[in-house]
């Protein structure tokens, strides 16, 4: 009699021949649309931002025009090369190339390590994977476990720096309501700067690191009522992080464009009241 003593308990197979068709995907819907749109928008932004950062002009509308509008790409304007009036108090007078390069590091690093943008570019640029149930374009994969991608873990530090920038851009927006030589008033430009600042705050506050630091990291909410309240406040924002990421990205470019058009004299900044 062929009896096997204690042969197997529910056998465990980790590897083995797979079923289903051997092709990258069976999906018939337009799964490629999402990565293509993402890639297009991100590329357009990068191209515009690079150009805007390097042109090093038309980023400030000053007292001569009875305005105080600065492009978010150039604020705070720390370089010695900054146009008169655009300086805050600290000036790095040695820095003579575009001031934008100095400070764009922060939003760039913040967005590059953002959990949402990571998802977006891993999918649309790195094709890892291009979409769900569509094969990864790479032969091997180690995720975020090795250099350089392990550096994504510094996101939290960019978040802190981003907060400082948000404060500065908020001040920029506030002071733009004071039009030199005219007085307090509302212009389209000041509204644009305000919306930009608000969107940036929404983006930062909805950040996953922010949610974690507010209260996500505690084991028991009941024992930390204040942190629970903070967490409760940012959690609904966090659910819209993707929307804020796109809205703030597009709007920051539009804000720069607006200031640029006014500064170059192409349009005038209309005063509402």
């Amino acid at each position: 009699m062929a009896t096997v003593e204690k042969a197997t308990v529910s056998p465990v197979t980790i590897g083995g021949t797979r079923g289903g068709p051997d092709q990258p995907t069976v999906r018939k819907d337009r799964w490629w649309l999402q990565p293509v749109v993402t890639a297009t928008v991100l590329t357009s932004f990068v191209v515009y931002a690079t150009w805007a950062a390097f042109v090093n002009k038309d980023y400030y509308v000053g007292a001569t025009e009875h305005r105080d509008l600065i492009s978010p790409f150039y604020s705070p304007c720390l370089a010695g090369s900054c146009v008169p009036g655009s300086h805050p108090h600290i000036v790095l007078s040695q820095w003579m190339i575009s001031p934008a390069i100095l400070i764009l590091i922060v939003p760039l690093g913040f967005r590059l390590t953002c959990y949402y943008y990571r998802r977006a570019y891993y999918r649309s640029f790195w094709l890892s994977p291009p979409n769900c149930a569509v094969a990864d374009a790479h032969g091997s994969y180690s995720g975020e476990t090795r250099f350089p991608l392990i550096l994504q873990n510094v996101h939290r530090w960019f978040f802190y720096l981003g907060l400082i920038l948000n404060v500065i851009l908020t001040i920029d927006a506030v002071v733009s309501y004071n039009q030199p030589g005219i007085g307090i008033g509302v212009t389209v430009g000041s509204l644009v700067l305000t919306v930009n600042a608000v969107l940036l705050w929404c983006y930062s506050l909805s950040c996953h690191s922010c949610r974690h630091l507010c209260g996500g990291q505690v084991r028991s909410f009941a024992k930390h009522p204040i942190r629970y309240r903070l967490w409760k406040f940012v959690t609904p924002l966090n659910a819209h992080h993707m929307n804020f990421a796109w809205a703030s990205l597009v709007f920051v470019a539009l804000t720069d464009l607006y200031v640029r058009l006014v500064a170059s004299g192409t349009i005038t900044d209309f005063r509402l009241f």
């Binding site: 197979t13 289903g20 149930a133």
Partner: peptide, 19 residues
Amino acid sequence: VAPMRTFPIIRDLVTDVSF
């Protein structure tokens, strides 16, 4: 209708999910 791709096939739509 295909079986789950990631796990070894047993038969038709049934895969070995012991992983």
